[in-house]
Nucleic acid binder design. Sequence first.
DNA 1: TGTACATCAGTGAACGCGCGTTCACTGATGTAC
DNA 2: TGTACATCAGTGAACGCGCGTTCACTGATGTAC
Lengths: 185, 185
Amino acid sequence: MRYSQDHKAQTHQRIIKEASERFRRDGIGATGLQPLMKALGLTHGGFYSHFKSKDELVEKALQAAGDQVAGICAELFAQDRPLQAFIDAYLSEWHQTTPHEGCPLLTMSSELGMRGQPSPTSDEVLNARLQQIQGTLEGENIVDRSIVIMSTLVGALLLSRSVENPEFARQILDVTRAHLNQSQT
Amino acid sequence: MRYSQDHKAQTHQRIIKEASERFRRDGIGATGLQPLMKALGLTHGGFYSHFKSKDELVEKALQAAGDQVAGICAELFAQDRPLQAFIDAYLSEWHQTTPHEGCPLLTMSSELGMRGQPSPTSDEVLNARLQQIQGTLEGENIVDRSIVIMSTLVGALLLSRSVENPEFARQILDVTRAHLNQSQT
DNA sequence: TGTACATCAGTGAACGCGCGTTCACTGATGTAC
DNA sequence: TGTACATCAGTGAACGCGCGTTCACTGATGTAC
């Protein structure tokens, strides 16, 4: 059956959004197209009238995740203490327990790198964060310092998500947050 | 056919070693038992006379990876400048391009955390590194500082493996290595 | 304005494939006499 | 010491399952007259 004019565009975006969440929460390889389409009330055969392969969806979903996160970060960096707002949000309990709405660098980008299929979009997402951080820094070696801050954020979040003991996970986030907040101004 | 006395133990260890490398390089989910056994010159059916499931192998392989890395780190921490030796090795080009012999925290532990099946062994591996780092530190907040150092190392290595541009990857490692080495003493 | 036709998003069965796991079987070795 | 038997690591076919992808088909909508 044929649908109204922009119905296809809406479905297209719904697939991308659902995929970007599942890829971040469960992993790309562990996300099946069949359950994905079913969750949207569609059948899996129709997938290929929207994308030519799963790989194409992965790239679109990574871009969408990057855009979503860019929006969230733009708000954070518009606050009074922009860097602290960003650090607090990145190392928040919400971000630890909500990977499907969070930073795609430690989920999608990492998995793509592991597969030997790194995407330029990963570089773009990372560079966007670095530039936002750099905008809040003063003094010398701004680029280098932004890279170190971002590495520390990513590492602390990854470890907190990997560890079994919840108190240990919280400690990693708390300690790292305190360190980064006091070392900047 | 029945084999000589310790033949089974040797095969057992060969399976664990090969698995610990493949799990770290390709991921747990992307590693099939059939190709794994074939690479060792065995048939896949025999797997279950060694392990009761893939999950059991995963746990053993994570422990083996932890032990292997512990051995490497023990040598590094026995050198003249132990912390610098560790940092330089962790952020080396070798570690970036040799995940199958490297730290299981950003490969196996991360994937297990993502699956909602975190292992206590992940905590043990991380704690072992933290204690080795703490042994090289002086002054206050030694535990906190060790967590920050480890987070920064893990994050920089993950980003360098995730990024598409090789120069960008190298820059992340170089900048982070320089920062960590100068901030300690 | 009303009618005939073309479009194409979505359907659902089917494809080959690799996965983890099972199972009856093999046959060289270790053990018991 | 020589022989008969039990053991069990490893074999290889088979299991059901979910994967990504294909394909002939449907039928409500947009378009042309």
